[in-house]
Amino acid sequence: MPVKVIKPGLLTTIQDLGRPGYFHLGIPIGGAMDRVSLRTANLLVGNDEGAAGLEAVFLGPELEFTEDATIAVTGADLPILIDDVEQPGWTALKIKAGQRLGFGYLKSGARAYIAISGGVDTPPMLGSRSTYAIGALGGVDGRAIAAGDSLPIGAGAGGTEGATVAPDLRRATGSPVELRVLPGLYWHRITETAQRGFFDDEWKVAPEADRMGYRFRGGKALEFVEREQPFGAGSDPSNIVDGCYPYGSIQVPGGTEPIVLHRDAVSGGGYFMIGTVISADMDLIGQLQPHMPVRFVEVDMETALKARADRAALMNRIRGALDR
C-alpha cells in the first residue's frame, strides 16, 4: 500500500543496489551511496538486502503511511520522528496507518536510508529501481521523489520490532576522515613533491559534492611532470587522450581540485586520474558533509583487498547479529 510524500526533503531518491553491467554504455551502477547502510536497513525490516529504499541526503522527507509497516532508518544520524516522537536509528520500528515519519536536523553523516517492509515497488528499469536522475532512469518517472507522490510498497513479512544493530557495527566517519587511495594509472604525471603533497595536505569536502562525484579543495595545486601533450589530449597538463573512468577514481581538472567519482559517475573522459579510492571506503564518502576535513592515505593492493574483505566480514557480522 502506498506511502504518501508530504515533503520530499532536499533530494530524496529511491535506491537499491544499482544496475551493474551497463557502464560501458555510459550508464553507471548507481544505487545507494552507502551500500552497507541500505543493506542493513533492509535486513532490519525483513526485506532482501537489495530491496529498494529511500536515500535522503542532508534533509529528511516527511512521509505518511496508509498501512501499518515496519521501517528502519540507518546511515546518517538524522533524528527520526514518528508523529513528532523521536525514535532510535538502526532499529526496526512499527509505524501505523495514518502516522507520519519525519526527521529533525542532521547531526552527523550525510545520507540516511529508509527501508520499508516490502520495499519500494516502483517499476525496475534495466534491472534496478535506483534513481539515475541525469539519465531519467528508475525512481519515480526517472526523478527524485516530490510532494504529492504516492510510492507503491510491496508485500513484506516485516522484521522484528525493536531489532537493532549494535553501535560497534555502525561505521563512524571520524575527523579528519581518512580515505584510502591506491595510486595509479596517471600517478607518474605529477612530480614527487606533488605526490607527497597530495597525501600530506588536508582537504575539505566542497559543497559541489553529489552522487556523481565528491569534489575536494584546500590542498596545494598539483605540479605536473612536463611532457609534450599527445595528439587529442588538449593543452592542459591535466588532460589525457580520453580514457575509461573507474568508480572511485580521482581526477584533478587543472591540477587544483580532486574529484572522486561515485555511484552515478560518468564512464569516461579526458581528465587524468592520480589514483582510486578503494572500494571499502566508498560507502564512507557517501556520509561526508561539505566542509569536512579529509586526508587521503596511500595504500597498496594487498591492503585494499584486505580492507574489502574486512568490509564483507562486517556485513556478515551484521547478518549474524540479525539472524539472517
Binding site: 532536499l10 542532508f58 536536523y105 542532521l106 550525510a110 559543497p207 558533509q289 561539505p290
Partner: peptide, 8 residues
C-alpha cells in the same frame, strides 16, 4: 532560525 542543511 537554524540552518536545515550543511553548506555555504
Amino acid at each position: 532560525i537554524l540552518s536545515p542543511l550543511p553548506g555555504t
